[in-house]
């Protein structure tokens, strides 16, 4: 039997559980919305403007860096599985690969991409 069927069944049951929980809560809870209650919370102050505004550029830089390094980390997984059987040859390849990764990290570092302001 395909084991990934289990993943699918788990997704369905998790969705069912959350949906059932939220529907139960919808049935038993009170609901008396008022103008003041549904206002955006800002410690009692009247909020000025919305929150959907421009935010710090740094977040994009880190997101991009993450994508680069995470994909490379995923490439390391199949390598790690076969490492024991390949031995020294795999080790040399690791040095090359990690060297490129480290060069990328040092480049980002020198370019001040890792600096949080």
């Amino acid at each position: 039997m395909n084991d990934y069927l289990a993943v699918f069944i788990f997704v369905v049951i998790a969705l069912g559980f959350t949906a059932a929980g939220l529907i139960t809560a919808y049935l038993v809870r009170t609901s008396r919305p008022s103008l003041k209650k549904c206002e955006t919370y800002e410690c009692g102050e009247e909020p000025v403007g919305g929150a959907w505004i421009q935010f710090n550029m740094r977040y994009y830089v880190f997101a991009l860096l993450f994508v680069v390094f995470d994909v490379e980390a995923v490439f390391l997984f199949p390598w790690a599985v076969v490492f024991r059987s390949f031995g020294a040859a795999a080790f040399v390849e690791l040095l090359v690969f990690l060297g490129i990764l480290l060069a990328g990290l040092i480049y980002a570092w020198k370019k001040n991409a890792l600096k949080w302001e």
């Binding site: 919808y26 038993v28 809870r29 206002e39 955006t40 919370y41």
Partner: peptide
């Protein structure tokens, strides 16, 4: 479970 569910207007 019993608490009111408040969704802000905005």
């Amino acid at each position: 479970l019993l608490k009111e569910d408040v969704i802000p207007d905005k």
